[in-house]
Computed example of a mutant assay.
Amino acid sequence: MTDWGQHLSKMRETAPLIQNITNYVSMNIMANVLLAAGASPAMVHAEEEAAEFASFTSALTINIGTLSAPWVRAMEGAAAAANKAGTVWVLDPVAVGATGFRRATGTKLLEYKPTIIRGNASEIMALGGMVASGKGVDSADSVEAAKAAADELANATGSIVAVTGPEDYVTDGSKAFVIANGHPTMPLVTALGCSLTGVVAAFAVGQPPLDATAAALAYYGLAGEVAAEMASGPGSFAVQFLDALHNITPEALAHGAKVQLA
């Protein structure tokens, strides 16, 4: 039986520095989430310094939520620098199928070989070239419908692909896990999905990326379950969620992780 808590323990021992090129909506929330989990966030996106920073950070995340041409150049420079340094980097293809600019950016970033790709079902399907039914940044497709696209995308890119939703699916193209942790209130708090990408990156530093991603998803979902027990609505849930991320122990994760081979 896998001890999923060991991945949380190793992440906290490392306290990795995570560079996040993310959207305006999520910056503050994502930084607080990473601090609560035990990592160190850096919100570095300027074209003039993003690549330099990516050459020495522990891990990099790239989120295409609020795109602009200078940001895309920063993303490409940072991804190239991460590759050169052998640094883990995670792509969050927010609403990648919504516009031509997003589709082109997503396709371009795949050329830089992300270690992990994390998105909702519609995003993963669109990134893989399938017809998807996204509603802005929200998924209109089921995780089940995206599993084949995730496997194909993983095989085509060499990346770990995580599809997040009511149940999560993470695959390397041949081996896959289903993670059943989580709570329905989580999508009602803005930027929790974006922030999850940072937690996935933190877990993947110095750890096998498939297992680390599954552990990160279980940890995040378990925090949602714990928070829901104390919350009376989305506002109090957001506060309780940060506390849960901070207070969950490796032992609690080992006991509470709902991870199965797919």
Results as ranks from 00 to 15, higher is better:
166 P>G: 08
191 A>S: 15
29 I>P: 00
100 G>T: 15
255 H>L: 13
166 P>T: 14
214 A>N: 04
171 T>N: 01
87 T>W: 04
70 P>V: 12
156 A>F: 03
241 F>A: 11
65 G>I: 09
236 S>Q: 02
121 A>S: 10
3 D>N: 12
20 N>F: 06
97 G>K: 05
200 V>D: 00
255 H>A: 15
59 A>N: 03
155 N>D: 07
27 M>S: 11
255 H>P: 00
175 K>I: 13
166 P>S: 15
21 I>N: 04
257 A>R: 01
47 E>C: 05
127 L>P: 00
64 I>M: 02
249 T>V: 10
178 V>G: 01
195 S>I: 07
256 G>P: 06
49 E>L: 14
259 V>F: 01
201 A>T: 07
143 V>R: 00
49 E>C: 10
129 G>W: 01
33 V>T: 14
236 S>G: 12
250 P>V: 13
204 A>N: 01
175 K>E: 11
27 M>D: 02
30 M>V: 11
41 P>N: 12
51 A>N: 10
250 P>Q: 07
192 L>H: 04
71 W>V: 15
7 H>F: 15
238 A>M: 14
260 Q>R: 15
249 T>E: 02
56 F>Q: 11
19 Q>R: 10
35 L>C: 09
47 E>Y: 09
151 D>S: 05
33 V>N: 08
4 W>K: 02
29 I>Q: 11
184 P>M: 13
54 A>L: 10
184 P>L: 13
241 F>V: 08
92 D>E: 10
129 G>P: 03
58 S>Q: 08
163 V>S: 00
153 L>I: 11
115 T>F: 03
215 A>K: 05
166 P>F: 07
75 M>A: 13
134 G>I: 10
25 V>H: 04
75 M>E: 03
160 I>Q: 01
257 A>Q: 01
124 I>S: 00
236 S>N: 07
187 P>R: 12
205 V>Y: 00
239 V>S: 09
96 V>D: 01
231 A>H: 07
13 E>T: 14
253 L>C: 02
31 A>H: 11
44 V>R: 03
17 L>F: 14
126 A>K: 04
40 S>Y: 10
115 T>A: 06
163 V>E: 00
247 N>R: 14
87 T>N: 08
199 V>W: 06
72 V>C: 04
106 G>T: 05
137 V>H: 01
85 A>P: 09
105 T>C: 10
57 T>C: 15
199 V>Q: 04
37 A>W: 13
124 I>E: 00
212 A>M: 09
21 I>V: 09
204 A>I: 07
13 E>W: 05
13 E>Y: 06
111 E>F: 06
226 V>R: 14
157 T>R: 07
2 T>N: 05
229 E>K: 15
149 A>Y: 03
241 F>R: 06
90 V>N: 04
87 T>K: 13
94 V>D: 01
209 P>G: 04
22 T>D: 03
158 G>I: 05
12 R>K: 11
114 P>E: 03
59 A>T: 08
200 V>P: 01
51 A>G: 07
